Simulated scan of single mutants.
Amino acid sequence: MATIKKYTKDNQEFYMFQAYLGINPQTGKEKRTTRRGFKTRKEARLALSMLELQADSGQLDQQPINLTFEDVYQQWWAGYINTVRESTMYKQKKVFQNHILPAFGKYRIRTITTSQVQTTLNKWFKQTDYSFKPWFNYTSAIFKYAILQGYIKDNPCTRVTMPKKLDKEDTLNFWDKDQLKTFFNGIDPVNDLEKYTLFRVLAFTGIRRGECLSLTWDDLNVQKATLDINKTLTHGDKGRLLIQPTKTKKGTRVISLDESTLLYLKKWHLEQRRMYLMLGYNINKSNQLIFATSKNTFKSLNTPSKWLRALIDDANKSGANLPSITVHGFRHSHASALFSAGASIKEVQERLGHEDAQTTLNIYTHVTEKQGQEAVQKLVNFLNF
């Protein structure tokens, strides 16, 4: 029979017990456990009684009742990391560390209620305009895993009410032709040749930020005026920068360049050689990065965003009245321009590297105000009465 003993730690009295829990059916060996840290003998006796009751009823063999949410997450994570890219793993690990585990990690997973999940979801909703749904989905994934493992029988996430912002105007994350022209007119193509070239490539090819920052000079075919998009720069574990394959199979593609964009790339190539020679770097190699730091390393993925914000601010100080967009907005702007120029859904899909046409339709449903006006004018011209 288990006995409760008193012991001293840091000049404080606590109680502990050792308990026999039967025979392990897999190993045939005795199962014993030691529990410490009880402040009173009564508290230790109550815990011992519950443990012995669970052992007698077989509950301990059916489910580990003391597993916390974080314990289950660690089990799930050990298998999950073998199914995703390092960049995806890095992003999701940060979500768990910064948001999900602080909310649920310390609680026993069987005790977490729908009310707790709803309260946390409401809090996340107020914190951000766009990221709370993935946080919620990852949380639900842990409960689903716990059900599959037999730790719990119910997922509290299935009964929450998803918060929804009402009367919120969509922010159009793209520029029309005139706005793009205004933006580029505000960049000095001589003194800021690298910035001008980088944003020109983004606007006139529609490639992603990571695809742009991973470009090397051997990706450029001057004779054919094409760019070979075959990789992307992204964050890996602990925030390190690394090169990965493109986001999808369709993402690996060859893009035709217009004459002006090709011209600026050639100008930047000459300027880069001159500049790096002065810095003591030999860049006469085919795998030289097109856009690199002054130490000839990968640029931070945040660099284009910092440049963009500063350029928009400077333009607006001069009375340009440019709405803010993200670096990804140049991809949206490119798609909008293609549609305005009469490109088909299939052509836009192929150029942007979307896996299917539905993705193109889902993302680029907005048209510019000018396109709407043109549609009305076409209708008037056709009806003509």
Rank of each mutant, 00 (worst) to 15 (best):
T252N: 12
I109C: 02
T119A: 12
Q92T: 13
F204Q: 10
K238M: 12
K93F: 04
R331P: 03
S300T: 10
Q244L: 15
V72D: 06
Q373Y: 13
N122P: 03
F96Q: 03
V160Y: 03
L220I: 14
R35H: 03
E211D: 08
Q377G: 09
G329K: 04
L265H: 09
K177T: 13
S256H: 07
T205Q: 04
V327N: 01
M50D: 15
R200V: 00
Q75D: 12
K181T: 14
L53I: 06
I363S: 08
N284Q: 12
K144Q: 14
G342L: 10
N381F: 04
L352G: 02
W76N: 01
D356K: 12
H269L: 08
W307S: 01
V254K: 11
A357L: 03
D192N: 10
D154K: 14
D61W: 02
G186W: 00
Y145E: 13
K266L: 14
E52A: 05
L279H: 09
A78R: 12
W77V: 00
E52S: 11
W175K: 00
F385H: 13
I229S: 09
N173T: 09
Y80P: 02
Q373P: 01
I81L: 12
C157I: 05
V380N: 15
A337R: 13
E369I: 08
W217F: 15
G319Y: 13
I312L: 12
T297E: 14
V380F: 11
T246K: 03
I312T: 09
T261G: 01
F143E: 02
D154P: 01
K9L: 09
Y196K: 05
I142E: 08
P163L: 00
L53C: 05
A337D: 02
F291V: 04
Q63S: 15
W268I: 06
Q223H: 10
C212S: 11
T158D: 14
K91P: 00
W135M: 07
V367E: 11
L202Y: 07
A2V: 10
N82G: 14
Q288G: 11
T8K: 13
H354N: 00
S286Q: 14
F38K: 02
T83N: 08
Q179R: 11
Y145V: 06
L241V: 08
H332E: 06
T359Y: 05
Y264M: 12
A103F: 08
G280H: 11
K250D: 08
A19I: 14
Q373W: 07
T246Q: 03
T33I: 10
N185P: 00
T293S: 13
N98I: 02
N122D: 15
R41D: 11
K6A: 11
F339W: 07
